[in-house]
Computed example of a mutant assay.
Amino acid sequence: MKHVLVFRWLSSPFRYAFAKLKRKLGKLNRLRLEIFLVIGNKTSVFIKGRVVEGYRQSRPSDKKTALQNLLATLRRYAGSSVPDATVCLAYGNHQRELTTDSEGLFETMLRFTDAEKRDIQSVRFSLLPERGLVPETNWVEKRIHWICKVCPRAVISDIDDTVIISKATNIGEKLWLSVSKNAYTRRPFPGVSEFYRLLTANGEYPVFYVSSSDWNLFDLIQDFLSYRDIPVGPILLKDGHINLKNIWKSGGGNHAHKLEKIQFLLEFFPEQQVLLIGDSGQHDPELYAEIIRRFPHRVEAVYIREVRKGDAAREQKLNQLLPPHRVAWVKTTREAMIHAREHLAV
């Protein structure tokens, strides 16, 4: 019964009520506006962001100790999401107001004419003032990441145990890596930068990162990719809010959201062929198989990094969905690069 009560307390309705109570009692006063996605196709711009309690995060460094990184992690997860906050969007001559959901998240789709696309290159965001609530800044401006050209491929990649060493199948090791390291001290798999630059023509083709990590890690992942010289691109993470009470759940649970986000990308860019990269530690092979079934002829190839002993039946289910040599099960990035040079137009 105790565990059931804890689960219920951490569930979304209770967190929502708790955040509302903190606002009413004046215990929630400084707000932070975070913008995750401002991406555009030929006609539309998709926007996603979040409002959380304000916190001051130190910049990562390869000189930081495990204790300093632990304290930074505590700050990162200490804030609560802020429901029912009003966010104002300004673009060109237009304005729009959005209200955050129970997780503090907001999203919208903006439609643009050709003339507006030429003239509007950024979107400005602001939190509308409320009594007792103070935004950290008045306005936040983000450039629109236009992706209008159809490229020979777009890469959609998992992150944990695909790009970054995470030990996702071992909760203890994964948690320790998450709290004791920062963006500069987390390690990528050897050769990932070179492999992704090969697949994207040195960053000319788009790359998207879809992960079961939570939005609290958004800036860490951005900094990690930049620091390790891995092609950067839009990052789509898990919506459920993680805080200090349930930090152990980060990156776990149901991975169906990854299927939804990959489907969104394929529908948002309907003419674009994609290449999928993941690992065998969790459910990537099954998720990617479902994507191929839903979007036949849209997936150029699949790369799966093997992090546990191979399963012939599991591999066969994915292999049979694409032509020969279009699914590669690899142990190292070097194997993946050799395969790509032999079987793909890279």
Rank of each mutant, 00 (worst) to 15 (best):
residue 119 D to S: 12
residue 119 D to V: 02
residue 120 I to R: 14
residue 122 S to H: 03
residue 122 S to F: 11
residue 122 S to C: 06
residue 123 V to T: 10
residue 123 V to D: 12
residue 124 R to T: 04
residue 125 F to I: 12
residue 135 P to W: 06
residue 135 P to A: 14
residue 137 T to I: 15
residue 139 W to P: 03
residue 142 K to V: 13
residue 143 R to K: 12
residue 143 R to A: 07
residue 145 H to D: 04
residue 145 H to S: 15
residue 146 W to D: 09
residue 146 W to I: 06
residue 147 I to P: 01
residue 150 V to G: 13
residue 150 V to D: 10
residue 153 R to S: 08
residue 155 V to A: 15
residue 156 I to P: 13
residue 157 S to T: 15
residue 158 D to K: 14
residue 159 I to S: 04
residue 159 I to R: 02
residue 159 I to M: 14
residue 161 D to H: 15
residue 162 T to W: 07
residue 162 T to A: 09
residue 163 V to D: 04
residue 164 I to W: 10
residue 166 S to I: 04
residue 169 T to Q: 07
residue 173 E to W: 06
residue 173 E to Q: 13
residue 175 L to C: 01
residue 177 L to A: 10
residue 178 S to C: 03
residue 179 V to N: 00
residue 179 V to F: 05
residue 180 S to P: 02
residue 180 S to I: 04
residue 182 N to F: 03
residue 186 R to K: 11
residue 186 R to M: 15
residue 187 R to A: 08
residue 187 R to P: 00
residue 189 F to M: 07
residue 189 F to L: 00
residue 190 P to T: 02
residue 190 P to H: 06
residue 194 E to T: 12
residue 195 F to K: 05
residue 196 Y to N: 01
residue 199 L to K: 04
residue 199 L to H: 02
residue 201 A to L: 15
residue 202 N to L: 09
residue 203 G to E: 00
residue 205 Y to M: 04
residue 208 F to G: 02
residue 209 Y to P: 08
residue 210 V to R: 04
residue 212 S to F: 08
residue 213 S to T: 11
residue 213 S to L: 03
residue 215 W to H: 14
residue 215 W to A: 11
residue 216 N to L: 04
residue 216 N to G: 05
residue 217 L to M: 05
residue 219 D to K: 09
residue 220 L to E: 03
residue 221 I to V: 12
residue 222 Q to E: 08
